[in-house]
Structure formats: C-alpha cells, structure tokens
C-alpha cells in the first residue's frame, strides 16, 4: 500500500464518517431550528432534552422489554420511536407552563423582548434536568447497544485491493433514519396547514396574529416538535455513542452552530449546517490533533458567521 493510497483511504474514511455523523447532527439541528428558528428563543436546555430522549429510548429498550419483543436489532429503533412522542409531550408541557411565561406577546413590554428572562429560565431548566437525571439514572456511562454497533460494511476494496472504507452499520442506519425524518418533516412544513402557520409565525408573529393564526399554539407545537426531533436524534446517536446525564452540554453548542450556519429560520438549512459541522469535525482529524477537533468546529463557525452573518440559507431582514 503506497503513501498516496493511505492518504486517499483516510480522506475517504473521514468523509464517510463525516457524512454519517453529519446526518445525525443535522437531525439534532433541525430539532433546534424548530424552536430557535420559529420562536427565536435560545433554549439552553435543548441538549438536555436530547439527553432525556436518550434515556427514554434506553429505558424503553431495557425496562419495557422491547429487547425481548422486537429482538436486539430492531428493538433499539422501536425504543427511539417511543422516545419521540414522550419528549413531544414533555416539550409541550415545558412550553405551556414555563416558556410561555417569558415569550410571545407578553414580552413586548419587557426589556430586550424578554431575551434575558428566556436565557436564565432555560439555564435553570438545564440545571434541573442534568442534575435530576444524575440522581435518577446515575452518572455512569450507558449506551443503547445493538449488534449493529459492532459491525461494519466494507466499501471496496478499490484501487487494486488497497483502499477500503468501513461504514459502521449502526451509524448508517441512524443516518438513513435521520434523512427520512427530515424529508417527512420538510414535506409537512411545506404542505400542511400546520406547517404554513408555523412558517408564518416564524416570519412575522405579530402579522400572523392579525390574520388569525394562534401564534401561541403554533409556538407550543413547534417547541414540542423540536423537542421530539432532538430526542429522536439523541436516541439514534445513543446506538453508537455511550452517554451520561451531562452529555447535553457537548452537543448543545454543535446544534446552535449548525442552526446559525444554516441560517436562522431555515429548517433545511439547519440540516446542512449540522452536516457541515459533522464533516468539518471528522475531516479536521486528517490534519489536526484529535483534541482540537472541536476547537476546529468553533473556529470554522466563527469564520463563516462573520463572513456571512445570515448563514447559508438565511435572508437579510434588517429594517430601519
């Protein structure tokens, strides 16, 4: 195997890993985009909603006995499918009882339109969730392992049997599920009445009220849906990544970076933003030490945002 072949192989391997991780990041970002893009609320607890989704899937799989009913391979994915609705309900309740108090129409009179209050409120929620999870579930690492986690498909060998790319099967399945969910969601937003009211509420909440859209309700659905999607992304991630109660902190930044890169308010943009983050993270390993993997994400994020503040898919909507 020549030097060139080694380089080609590592590039291909990093690209494949980037696309697979990027698809899951993309799904996470789409979940956040539903909340951040539509309500313009910075939810610091988003990562912790994801963590709840991971545990929900984990306990559905182990304690509910899905393992025995559905078997070891499809079981975890059924568990992930259960985590979605659970977190939908959770997000719905959090918005109804907490977030609503500091968002929407009642913030018009507040300083900075209530941003300060939203930040502290969601920080408080994040603290409760992280520490509550530690008390209930313990601090040790757990994972939603499937037999697929340990298996890989091999692409190749190519180039005279020298170059081969390995694709972890759990990651491939997770990436495919992510893309399918996003496609479905995209159709919903474009086609359905609910989707249209969500887009209207995102574009101009005040005008939406005047044309008879229940913005408060639209926001609540968006918040719940965003929580559910992020939870599903978390569950999929858990099939190939062990996790713990504080895992949310690692990903909340990735999510925001992805959403901002894609352009606030654009759901499809958020997916590509997440994909970009995944690729940058994996490709950086080729030239930089592993410890700087995440630093690369942030530097890349800063460069892009300063160069193009509206993101890849965003529009400039500043008015005097």
């Amino acid at each position: 195997m020549t030097g060139t072949q080694i380089i080609i192989e590592s590039i291909l391997q990093a690209l494949a890993a980037g696309v697979l991780v990027g698809a899951i990041y993309g799904l996470m970002c789409v979940g956040l985009a539903m909340i951040f893009g539509i309500m313009r609320v910075i939810n610091f607890a988003q990562g912790d909603f994801m963590m709840l989704g991971m545990y929900a899937a984990y306990f559905a799989f182990t304690a509910l006995g899905l393992q025995t009913v559905f078997g070891a391979v499809p079981g975890p994915y059924v568990a992930v499918a259960i985590a979605g609705p659970l977190l939908f309900a959770f997000g719905y309740a959090v918005h109804k009882f907490l977030i609503r108090q500091v968002t929407g129409m009642r913030t018009i009179a507040m300083e900075a339109e209530g941003h300060y209050a939203q930040l502290v409120l969601t920080l408080g929620i994040a603290l409760v969730l992280q520490n509550g999870a530690m008390i209930l579930f313990g601090a040790q690492l757990v994972s939603l392992r499937t037999p697929l986690t340990g298996q890989a498909w091999m692409l190749g060998p190519m180039w005279g049997d020298a170059v081969a790319v390995f694709l972890n099967q759990a990651k491939v399945v997770a990436a495919i599920v992510s893309v399918v969910i996003i496609a479905g969601l995209w159709l919903c937003i474009k086609r359905t009445r609910l989707g249209k009211s969500l887009r209207a509420a995102a574009d101009n909440p005040e005008a939406s009220v005047y044309v008879g859209i229940d913005v408060d309700h639209a926001h609540r659905i968006a918040f719940a849906l965003g929580s559910a999607i992020t939870a599903v992304a978390g569950g999929l991630l858990a099939t190939n990544h062990p996790f713990h109660p504080f895992v949310g902190l690692d990903y909340v930044i990735v999510m925001y970076a992805g959403v901002v890169l894609g352009g606030i308010g654009s759901v499809i943009g958020a997916f590509w933003g997440g994909m970009t983050i995944g690729l940058v993270q994996q490709l950086s390993i080729l030239v930089l030490p592993t410890q700087l993997q995440n630093a690369t994400i942030f530097v890349f994020f800063l460069l892009i945002v300063i160069w193009r503040p509206q993101g890849f898919f965003g529009r400039v909507t500043e008015r005097t």
Binding site: Q101, L123, N131, I135
Partner: peptide, 24 residues
C-alpha cells in the same frame, strides 16, 4: 447524601424567580 440535588434545587429556584420577576 444525594449528589446533584443542589443543582435541582438551584435550578428550580432560578426558574421560579425568573417567572415571578422576568427582568430581575
């Protein structure tokens, strides 16, 4: 006794106060 309970109480205190006094 209960590692993490302080984070829960602290978080709850912040949540309750910020809803009662959103601007501080």
């Amino acid at each position: 006794y209960l590692p993490g309970i302080q984070g829960v109480i602290y978080g709850l205190a912040i949540i309750i106060l910020i809803i009662a006094a959103p601007e501080g």
